Simulated assay, not measured.
Amino acid sequence: MRILVAGAGRLGTQAAQVLGAADNDVTLLDRDDDRVAALRGRLPVRLEAGDACEPAVLESAGAHTADLVIAATGEDEDNLVISLLAKRQFHVARVVARVNDAENAWLFDHRWGVDAAVPAATPLVSLIEEATSASDTVALLRLSKAGVNVIETTITPRSRAAGRTLADLAVPHGTFVAAVVRDGQPTAPDPGLRLAAGDELLVLSHSATEGEIHAVFQ
């Protein structure tokens, strides 16, 4: 998912960090050059400096191709302008805006291009849920925060795991297959299940790296 987060305050930065770590294509935009400079190299996202209330800045940051825009600045007026531009000028499918002052909450609706409004005190997981409209994404984020790596891998005809059962594979300690998706349908990961090309595996581990997991299945 291509995501643009406007506002590199606490909430915007945390949202960008978590969404970026979940393998989304994230850009974090803020008007404060010093704040942007301080964050460079610390987040798995692109960082851009500029005023998100300016259409040219939004376009340069990728609003014209974004699937989701999160307006998370500390000013309600700015968040409304960003939302309206995102929806009306750039036709972004989903726009989420932070409400800093509860008295302004009534403004944050479709008239201003807002699909979901979240109070400033909203927990990060709740913000992500509103942003993505996907409870499964939230579940994965909670696992990530708990120190559990969620790794996806697909079996190909050349994979060493093709034709072997799950019981035949020596996975690292603390690792297990949570689900096998075959022909678009989830299959119970029974130890006797024989893997085939095209199978998609969801693997959970609190210790193994992505490279170690792929070494087992690929």
Results as ranks from 00 to 15, higher is better:
residue 118 V to F: 02
residue 137 T to P: 02
residue 155 I to S: 00
residue 43 L to C: 10
residue 83 S to A: 13
residue 40 R to A: 13
residue 42 R to W: 08
residue 106 W to E: 11
residue 64 H to R: 09
residue 70 I to T: 04
residue 105 A to E: 15
residue 86 A to T: 01
residue 92 V to K: 05
residue 157 P to H: 04
residue 101 D to S: 08
residue 139 A to E: 10
residue 113 G to D: 02
residue 154 T to I: 12
residue 133 S to Y: 08
residue 80 L to N: 03
residue 144 S to D: 09
residue 136 D to L: 15
residue 71 A to M: 09
residue 88 R to N: 12
residue 101 D to I: 12
residue 125 V to W: 06
residue 51 D to F: 07
residue 140 L to R: 11
residue 136 D to K: 14
residue 55 P to Y: 09
residue 107 L to E: 07
residue 53 C to V: 14
residue 149 N to S: 15
residue 149 N to A: 15
residue 130 E to H: 14
residue 116 A to I: 06
residue 43 L to V: 12
residue 153 T to I: 00
residue 80 L to G: 05
residue 40 R to Q: 13
residue 114 V to I: 02
residue 124 L to Q: 02
residue 76 D to R: 06
residue 92 V to D: 02
residue 92 V to A: 08
residue 42 R to N: 11
residue 134 A to I: 06
residue 103 E to C: 06
residue 90 F to M: 10
residue 149 N to W: 06
residue 139 A to M: 13
residue 33 D to P: 11
residue 155 I to K: 00
residue 95 V to D: 03
residue 85 L to T: 01
residue 154 T to C: 00
residue 98 R to Q: 09
residue 133 S to A: 15
residue 106 W to M: 10
residue 144 S to E: 10
residue 94 R to L: 04
residue 50 G to Y: 04
residue 46 R to M: 12
residue 39 L to H: 08
residue 32 D to E: 13
residue 120 A to W: 12
residue 110 H to A: 14
residue 100 N to Y: 02
residue 47 L to E: 01
residue 116 A to C: 14
residue 33 D to N: 10
residue 106 W to D: 12
residue 66 A to Y: 02
residue 38 A to R: 14
residue 115 D to S: 11
residue 154 T to Y: 01
residue 111 R to M: 05
residue 66 A to G: 03
residue 67 D to T: 13
residue 138 V to A: 15
residue 80 L to H: 05
residue 109 D to N: 15
residue 46 R to H: 11
residue 58 L to R: 04
residue 68 L to K: 08
residue 100 N to F: 00
residue 108 F to R: 01
residue 75 E to H: 10
residue 77 E to K: 08
residue 53 C to H: 05
residue 43 L to G: 11
residue 77 E to L: 09
residue 115 D to R: 07
residue 63 A to V: 00
residue 67 D to W: 11
residue 72 A to P: 00
residue 102 A to W: 06
residue 102 A to R: 13
residue 60 S to R: 10
residue 122 T to F: 06
residue 51 D to E: 07
residue 69 V to C: 04
residue 85 L to K: 03
residue 126 S to L: 15
residue 71 A to H: 07
residue 41 G to M: 08
residue 71 A to G: 08
residue 74 G to I: 10
residue 118 V to N: 07
residue 113 G to N: 03
residue 155 I to G: 00
residue 88 R to L: 13
residue 113 G to F: 04
residue 48 E to I: 15
residue 71 A to C: 09
residue 88 R to C: 10
residue 154 T to P: 00
residue 140 L to C: 11
residue 43 L to A: 10
residue 122 T to L: 09
